[in-house]
């Protein structure tokens, strides 16, 4: 048994002369949450469609759960749940009827299907509206029904395209909580998004897409180190001799840059979390420590910084 549930090798998709996905090498481990990031049109959805066998790759190879999606699509699709962006349902049918159709397409027998439908609807908190027409549902409810729809086949892996698109902040927060509970159950999750803050909150690793290529890949702190040259930003508020405190902080191992922001506020860009050492340094320099905060790296910033560099590079 292989640890990798998704593996692609030089995966390429061309539409005419336009290259949507360019020699992509992507690997996703069993049980991890992987985020595909990038602006619209960067090739995220095309990649997902190729993983499911819904679009034929122009060249290169794909393996999903050890299977080839373009030759064994039925096996792949019966083990992989997929939720497209702004997932749609038949408005004139109830939530339950929509799921019955999915269950039938998956070849579940009747009794099993009803049991599972009750299970998944309860799971996403829609059991009370099971017999309401989907036309009356809010975007957030449809999105949760989308998750129920995926879980119906008891997938080993789920793929979600822009799952939080169109949700209000509260809806998005609840949705991310749902994703976390799925991860705890050992389901591998691949999700794409351009809402970086949310991806950062749930993903173990991320891949940054730009014009069909995955230009960066790794955990968020790794990317922070690589792109910004730092992984942590520490805020210190201290009273005392500014120059003494500042030079003391600069001597702390791991500190990349120390800035005096405003009177008694200091900002340290650091390679690792050096709060204890920084606190000690402030004390030794005769300062009074008033506040000490760490800000982990922000994916938004990494993203913006990276694309700024790319623009300049061109």
């Amino acid at each position: 048994m292989n640890d990798w549930v998704i593996e692609t090798k030089d995966l390429t998709k061309k539409y005419g002369t336009f290259t949507a996905v360019d020699a992509l090498n992507l690997s996703v481990k069993h049980g991890e949450v992987f985020g595909l990031l990038g602006p619209n049109g960067a090739g995220k959805t095309t990649t997902i469609l190729m993983l499911l066998g819904l679009t034929e790759p122009t060249s290169g190879e794909v393996r999903v759960l050890g299977l080839d999606p373009s030759r064994q699509p039925l096996s792949v699709k019966s083990h992989v749940g997929y939720m497209p962006d702004l997932v749609g349902f038949y408005d004139e049918l109830t939530a339950e009827e929509n799921l019955i159709y999915t269950a039938k397409l998956n070849g579940l027998d009747r009794r099993d299907a009803y049991k599972r439908i009750d299970e998944v609807l309860e799971r996403v908190g829609l059991q009370d509206v099971a017999d309401h027409n989907v036309g009356t549902f809010s975007r957030g409810m449809k999105q949760r029904l989308g998750v129920a729809d995926m879980l119906l086949k008891r997938p080993q892996m789920i793929i979600m395209d822009e799952p939080t698109q169109g949700l209000d902040p509260e809806g998005a927060r609840e949705f991310l909580q749902l994703i976390r509970t799925l991860k705890e159950e050992g389901i591998t999750i691949l999700l794409s998004s351009h809402l970086l803050f949310q991806v950062q909150a749930v993903c173990d690793r991320v891949g940054l897409f730009h014009r069909g290529k995955m230009v960066l890949e790794g955990t968020v702190p790794e990317l922070g180190r690589r792109v910004l040259g730092r992984a942590y930003r520490i805020h210190i508020e201290a009273e005392g001799d500014q120059n003494a405190i500042r030079s003391a902080l600069q001597k702390v191992p791991g500190a990349v840059q120390v800035e005096l922001a405003d009177g008694r506020l200091y900002r340290i860009e650091a390679e690792h979390d050096l709060r204890p050492a920084a606190a000690e340094a402030v004390m030794n320099a005769g300062g009074k420590l008033l506040r000490l905060d760490v800000e982990t790296q922000n994916l938004d910033e990494i993203y913006a910084h990276y694309f700024k560099e790319v623009e300049h590079g061109n």
């Binding site: 497209p84 702004l86 397409l105 989308g146």
Partner: peptide
């Protein structure tokens, strides 16, 4: 209705 990709992601051709 945006249902096509969801339906085709089920194990059918």
């Amino acid at each position: 209705r945006r249902t096509l990709s969801r339906i085709l992601a089920q194990p059918i051709y």
